[in-house]
Structures are given as structure tokens and as C-alpha cells.
């Protein structure tokens, strides 16, 4: 008798628990699962030499970037030239006409105007893109600190932006 009551109580508790979970899980999904822009569009860069930076974007599956929304910037003492953007996928946009988009990995060569070998620079990269899930991100800026190679030295390592901590 006592064992029966116990079993009954455990079963009841189990059902209650399941019902609570089902209620929480059964609510209509409010939003598509989305990556934050810095994860959807992973930026990294390396200094090829004192005049050239190679910027990379690793674009997550299901996301794309617009070719005409890139901008690169360093301090005024260094200065960037026109970035060498590869050709993208052409897409007709009802409002903007023909636009080009990128998926997967892209590599952009960014010339530096007035850098000196061995100098440390901060490269800021602005980009803008969307997810196939049907949302677009506002333009976002990511940045890396790079040490330019000394004259005649091999290219520097690939550097990723420092990730923000939990509380900053």
C-alpha cells in the first residue's frame, strides 16, 4: 500500500514535470535561431607586407554579405587605398538594381598608403549582411590589431578580433 502511494506520487510528479516542459517547449517559436553578426561574419586579417593587408571573412552557412557595403579604415597616419574586392554572386534587387553578394570565405586585399615596416596598426572593417532566415543585420564594425612585418620579413600571422567578454 505504502509502496503504491509512493509510485503514484512519483508518476504524478513526473507527469507534472513533463507537462511543464511541454508547455514551455510548445510555445510558438518567436524568432529564428540567429548568430550574432561577429559569428555569422567572422573577420580575420594578416599583414602580407608593410603595404598590404589580407582581410578575410568566413561567412556562416545561410548568411551572406553585400559587396558594396564593405569599408576599411586605419588611423589617418596609415591610410587605406581601394580594397580589391573579388566578384560576388549577382543578384537582382527590386530597389537597388543589380547587387553582388558573398557566401563562404572571401579574401580582400587592402592596400596601405603610408605604413612603415614593423609598425603596429589597427584595421577596422565594416560589413553588412543578412541571413537566409529573413533578417538583415545593421552594418557592423570589427577590428584587429596587426604588426606589419619588417622589411623583407615573411607575412604575419592571421589575427582574429578579440572577442568581447561576458560583461563588456
Amino acid at each position: 500500500m505504502r509502496a503504491d502511494t509512493t509510485r503514484l506520487a512519483i508518476a504524478a510528479a513526473g507527469w507534472l514535470a513533463l507537462a511543464a516542459l511541454a508547455q514551455a517547449a510548445g510555445l510558438p517559436a518567436v524568432e529564428p535561431k540567429l548568430l550574432p553578426p561577429e559569428e555569422a561574419f567572422r573577420f580575420s586579417a594578416r599583414a602580407v607586407d608593410a603595404r598590404t593587408i589580407e582581410a578575410r571573412f568566413d561567412i556562416a552557412d545561410g548568411y551572406y554579405l553585400y559587396r558594396d557595403k564593405f569599408a576599411f579604415e586605419t588611423g589617418p597616419d596609415v591610410g587605406v587605398g581601394a580594397p580589391d574586392l573579388p566578384a560576388g554572386h549577382r543578384k537582382h534587387d527590386a530597389f537597388f538594381g543589380d547587387v553582388e553578394t558573398y557566401r563562404g570565405r572571401i579574401v580582400v586585399r587592402v592596400p596601405l598608403a603610408r605604413a612603415t615596416p614593423g609598425q603596429s596598426i589597427v584595421l577596422k572593417a565594416a560589413s553588412q549582411g543578412c541571413a537566409d532566415a529573413g533578417v538583415c543585420y545593421p552594418p557592423s564594425v570589427q577590428q584587429v590589431s596587426l604588426a606589419l612585418p619588417a622589411a623583407g620579413a615573411p607575412p604575419g600571422p592571421v589575427v582574429e578580433p578579440r572577442r568581447k567578454g561576458l560583461f563588456n
Binding site: 506520487a9 512519483i10 513526473g14 507534472l16 514535470a17 513533463l18 511543464a20 514551455a24
Partner: peptide, 28 residues
């Protein structure tokens, strides 16, 4: 409850209810 199994069951149930409530608050 005096029964160990019953207490355990109650504990699990409360934990899951709290978790479910947490999910709700997190979503909305």
C-alpha cells in the same frame, strides 16, 4: 514526505518546473 523516493520525485518535479519557468522568462 517521509519516503525518500517521494522526496526525490518532488525535487525533480520542482527542478523541472523551475527550468520550464526559466525557459518561458528567457523567451518572453
Amino acid at each position: 514526505p517521509k519516503s525518500r523516493a517521494l522526496r526525490w520525485g518532488l525535487g525533480v518535479a520542482l527542478a523541472v518546473v523551475a527550468l520550464a519557468a526559466g525557459i518561458q522568462v528567457g523567451r518572453h
